[in-house]
Simulated assay, not measured.
Amino acid sequence: MTIYPAIDIKGGRCVRLTQGRADQETVYFDNPAEVAALFKAAGSAWVHVVDLDGAFSGESQNLAAVRAIAALGLRVQLGGGMRSREAVERALGLGVSRVVVGTRAAESEDFVRGLVAEFGEKIAVGIDAKDGKVAVKGWVDTTGLGALEFAARMSGLGVGTLIYTDISTDGMLTGPNLPAQTAMLKAVKCRVIASGGVSRQADVGALAALAKQHANLDGVIIGKAIYEKRVDLPQALRDAAA
């Protein structure tokens, strides 16, 4: 199981939002590359980066910060504002290893099909769920689309990786929604990265145990718990590898 420490960028700074709300922002670092370097020093190979300004506006806003993170040699998984083929190409051109498409994926299967045909494993689809329904545009809008149904359709298009976020737990430090993650793992054959709610070392262990039961659990994204020192990243990496 891979640990994906998270860096959310807003206004060029590293922040965390509570349940995706722009008015619930905590700034942790002025320079996102600084925290990325700390993650690398701790032993992480990957970093999950979200351009929050891009997610809210629909256009990438923090590519200079993304470029600086990629230059460190980390494998970058980037989401936020990836709503056109040009945006995806631009991100990959910066050295990003995997681009996460969310809002546009919920709007157009043809868009996803074309990206997968051209870029293959470099494309992931982010599924952000609120009460089991897909949320889009930085979680501002909730669709009538069921998360599990949507996931099955994306898997059927050949998407190799899904990132499943339970919005109710994101940034709340209440523990991951294991039943929801389990249902997602059972619904698809492709890889799933769990996101939302990790609050302590034991949560990492619980997800690692789940990965032993479901081989398609690729990893977990951890954000606020690392910044709040509730999870020790080097220990989490060891737990995930055990």
Rank of each mutant, 00 (worst) to 15 (best):
M1W: 11
I3K: 05
Y4G: 10
A6P: 00
C14I: 00
V15F: 06
L17E: 10
R21T: 11
Q24V: 04
Q24I: 06
E25I: 14
F29D: 07
D30P: 09
N31P: 04
P32M: 02
E34Q: 10
A36H: 01
A37E: 14
S44A: 15
S44T: 08
S44E: 03
A45V: 09
W46T: 04
H48D: 01
V49D: 02
L52A: 01
L52C: 02
D53M: 03
A55S: 12
S57I: 06
G58T: 10
E59S: 14
E59A: 13
L63Q: 05
L63Y: 05
L63V: 04
A64M: 03
A65W: 00
I69V: 07
A70Y: 03
L72A: 06
L74G: 06
G80S: 10
G80W: 05
G81T: 09
R83Q: 08
R83G: 07
S84W: 11
V88P: 03
E89H: 02
R90P: 02
L94M: 11
G95R: 01
V99P: 11
V99F: 08
V99K: 07
V99E: 05
V101P: 10
T103I: 05
T103Y: 01
R104D: 07
E107F: 05
F111P: 04
R113E: 08
G114D: 15
A117M: 07
G120W: 11
G120A: 15
K122C: 04
I123K: 05
A124R: 05
G126K: 04
D128P: 03
D128A: 03
G132Y: 08
A135S: 15
V136S: 09
V140S: 10
D141F: 15
T142G: 02
G146T: 07
F150L: 08
A152I: 09
M154V: 10
G156K: 12
G158M: 12
G158T: 13
G160R: 15
T161M: 13
T161L: 15
L162M: 13
T165D: 06
T169P: 03
M172R: 14
M172L: 12
L173Q: 08
T174L: 12
L178K: 09
T182W: 08
K186I: 12
K186Q: 15
A194G: 11
A194W: 05
G196E: 04
G196A: 07
V198F: 10
A202I: 13
G205L: 12
A208M: 08
Q213R: 15
Q213I: 03
H214D: 10
H214A: 13
H214I: 09
N216K: 09
G219Y: 08
V220P: 02
I221D: 03
K224L: 11
Y227G: 04
E228M: 04
Q235M: 12
R238A: 14
R238C: 08
D239R: 11
A241G: 15
